[in-house]
Design a protein around this nucleic acid. Sequence first.
DNA 1: TATAAATCAGTAATGATTACTATTTTATTA
DNA 2: TAATAAAATAGTAATCATTACTGATTTATA
Lengths: 124, 124
Amino acid sequence: MKHYSKQREAILEVLRKTDTHPTANWIYEKVREKIPNISLGTVYRNLSGLTADGEILKVEVGDGFEHFDGDISPHLHLYCKGCGKIMDQKLKSDYISRVAKESDFKTDTTIYVAYGICKNCKQN
Amino acid sequence: MKHYSKQREAILEVLRKTDTHPTANWIYEKVREKIPNISLGTVYRNLSGLTADGEILKVEVGDGFEHFDGDISPHLHLYCKGCGKIMDQKLKSDYISRVAKESDFKTDTTIYVAYGICKNCKQN
DNA sequence: TATAAATCAGTAATGATTACTATTTTATTA
DNA sequence: TAATAAAATAGTAATCATTACTGATTTATA
């Protein structure tokens, strides 16, 4: 990713404005409201570049889709096996990042996914 | 997964005996040494069941493959973007699991993936 | 402006994973 | 232990999220 493009900006804006963890296709549909003829391949290419550049996170929870997150601050992803939703939880201390840095491994990003059942699904 | 099967046992044994994080296909090739006519579908089905039963972990690092882990104790996965290897690092405190439990979310498993460059790749 | 490099839209291809079916294995019950 | 029901298997075909490709367009550089 060396050049600016309005497609890239629009994709990033969609991700910055949502607190969900959308798939490439959801982002595609959303960006099409602004750029109707954008191609799905462009969305995938830019998501890949934005992830490589550390501007967004790619989160995989095992549901068969790549999910993307515009919030790159250290936080925990709570994936509900009941409804499939991904919720966020802020971390007071980034303990894990500190642990990773203790090793000879040069870390740039850490992703946390907790699996379980959310409050709503527990009741039903 | 209600019944025993020798295929399931063989798959689990392969995972318990390695400290790598193999793909379904790698496990398939390994199990074929014992059960030559096992089918790849059987491997996938059992990996899915073993994961659901909490006997193994499914770890996704974004390389296009599902990786499986026979070690279910809380530990950090260090994924090297250079060589693609997944290394383990033990955690002294399971801080994140505690954080997850503070919420209304009933957690059963937490997976940690740190992205970066390993010692070997840094030198080259 | 002119040139080179990067990105794009549109479409086709890929391949890891899942679904399907007839057969075999396992568990249950008498 | 034999008979029955339920679950798992081997083998194969289908799926579909993602990637690759190509000629046209946009961006950066000077």
